[in-house]
Design a protein around this nucleic acid. Sequence first.
DNA 1: CATAGACATGTAAAGAGAGACATGTTGTTG
DNA 2: CAACAACATGTCTCTCTTTACATGTCTATG
Lengths: 177, 177
Amino acid sequence: MSLRHGLLGLLAGEPGSGYDLTRRFEDTLGSIWPAKHPQIYGELTRLASEGLIEAEAEGPRRRKEYRITDAGLTELRRWLTDVDVDHTMRLDPVLRSLFFWLMSPAELEQHLTEEAEFYREKAQLYRGYAEAKDRGDFGDNPQTRSLRVTVEAAIRLYDSLADWAEWAKTVPPATPK
Amino acid sequence: MSLRHGLLGLLAGEPGSGYDLTRRFEDTLGSIWPAKHPQIYGELTRLASEGLIEAEAEGPRRRKEYRITDAGLTELRRWLTDVDVDHTMRLDPVLRSLFFWLMSPAELEQHLTEEAEFYREKAQLYRGYAEAKDRGDFGDNPQTRSLRVTVEAAIRLYDSLADWAEWAKTVPPATPK
DNA sequence: CATAGACATGTAAAGAGAGACATGTTGTTG
DNA sequence: CAACAACATGTCTCTCTTTACATGTCTATG
């Protein structure tokens, strides 16, 4: 249940509406923790009912801006320090690799080329963010520093996967006689 | 819904019971696609009712050994070649990094040390499998070659994460004056 | 022969997440 | 002023996944 704490964390950074948070999730977390708006609105309602966040009066278009409460900040810190990290990965592309032997060499070649390209582009995208940050484009404060660390993970993961796909292309499919 | 095709793929390699598949998922796929037995039994029943797999008569302890049917193999191949790869990642440890600014330097230091250790051990574990395979311990056929590719992904991913955690320790937490 | 551990299969309930449906507002542009 | 895009919030249903509960068999060991 990391969505809960993801929302809490984003709100610890700055207040926002469900709409804002949906966009922030998509922009900064899209690759590492996707979340759709129905789930976010639901979770915000639950968090508010538990007093971990609170909303001021409604704004222009029924806009409800939430901010984190002291209880919420306490819960967030508790999660960060006391709750075990969930190391679960669920990677469809890697699962598929277990079944590469069922694909023809041509199909596999094409598949791996596309995968490598996809990952390399993603890595480039995040590298762009990282460079902008390092140039000072986003200012410098503890929050943007953390974001920089997160972005670094994305770069490294996507680069690894791109390297892996390229490496996999060099593995001969059948037993060499 | 990769579990479905994961099961189909494992059964394409060799027939097995729900119990077998649960273990195989845990052993070879535990890190990249976890699945618990209730889910596996349920999915096997569904696959059987759709004719993608079939069971022979029950063995010793009500054991039902399933094998893939031609329809199942067709469906598996269709998935591998025609269905878009799902690139979704959901990584709690990376999500957490976005909120590192809420942790004290000491807490963060400890957290990152533990993370790095965890990933490095995992990488080592898979490196061990890879070396055994490369030594020829598991023989050589298309299936074990694919497994070798999958293992390589695990090694690279875990090493990246370990490197990342170590790198993160070198990032100063606050704006240097 | 008792008993423990591995083998073996399931059901039920609850939570997480995705996709479709539904509604209405504000601001910009032609 | 019409129309569209972006803003904004929700519900409902279905699927996927986990956890707890439940049951029974076979084999090796003391």
